[in-house]
């Protein structure tokens, strides 16, 4: 019996180097599965999930007229429950005019500039987070398909390169933790697979909602690298790669994370 165990253990260790590297599709797990029961319960109940407060604010903003065009999002897009269903699961998406991928936040600001003649909302401002949370919430439960567009291939590849590239004074790549060492712990906290299923999400540490870019920037600061600016092509490419890497996982917005 014990020799069988030893053989099984030996096989497991032999298999480890093969496991390191990209996570096979059927082994991909949302950050939700790494959380404790209390935090899960907080996310699961819409009346205890603080992210839902932002969704409510976003719902109000959706039908509030803005800019000199005196138009609300709802005036063009109608009922978000149908018009925005599944949209966030496809973002970052290619903007044909700009010929590059843009995030949902950037799409909202483009809409504000082009159709509402309104000023852009600043990154991580309450209004922008609320609007993108409200839009992304309409995709809750829908499988992620971002990056499927063949025209996005070079940008997904760019994001993948950034994910694999060591950086900062600690000389760590994203993949060193999130591909090779997930399920282990870093300073007592579980290392997740970095699957961006629930953004914008409510992070208890932040005590507010935050975007995937905020999360990426704080990881970069963590490895003592210079973080890319909000909306920079590098962050968008990383975001796109992460979403394509999470292909098939279900959207959870607004998720709650410790």
């Amino acid at each position: 019996m014990s020799s069988w165990r030893a053989i099984a253990a030996a096989l497991l260790f032999a298999a480890l180097p093969a496991l390191a590297g990209e996570i096979p599709p059927d082994a991909r797990r949302s950050g939700y599965t790494f959380m404790g029961p209390d935090t899960r319960a907080m996310q699961d109940d819409d009346t205890s999930n603080p992210g839902m407060l932002f969704v409510l604010d976003g719902e109000a903003l959706w039908s509030t007229k803005a800019g000199s065009a005196e138009k609300a999002c709802a005036d063009c897009h109608g009922d978000a429950r149908s018009s925005m269903k599944g949209v966030a699961a496809r973002y970052p998406a290619l903007d044909k005019l700009l010929a590059r991928p843009i995030t949902l936040d950037q799409r909202i600001n483009l809409c504000r500039a082009n159709h509402q003649q309104a000023t852009a909302l600043t990154y991580e401002s309450r209004d922008l987070l609320a609007l993108s949370a409200f839009v992304a919430h309409q995709s809750r439960g829908i499988a992620i398909t971002a990056g499927d567009d063949p025209d996005l291939k070079p940008f997904v590849a760019q994001g993948r390169d950034l994910f694999m590239q060591r950086e900062g004074q600690l000389n760590l790549a994203c993949s060193n933790c999130h591909d090779d060492n997930f399920d282990k712990r870093l300073a007592g906290a579980p290392i997740t697979q970095a699957q961006p299923t629930g953004y914008p999400l409510y992070r208890l540490e932040w005590q507010t909602l935050g975007s995937l870019e905020r999360r990426l920037r704080s990881c970069m600061t963590g490895v003592r690298a210079q973080a890319y600016e909000y909306g920079s092509p590098e962050l968008v490419a990383l975001e796109l790669y992460l979403m394509s890497r999470a292909r098939g996982l279900k959207m959870e917005t607004p998720a709650v994370r410790p």
Partner: peptide, 8 residues
């Protein structure tokens, strides 16, 4: 301000 209430 947004508020969420849960009363049966």
């Amino acid at each position: 301000m947004a508020t969420l209430i849960n009363v049966p």
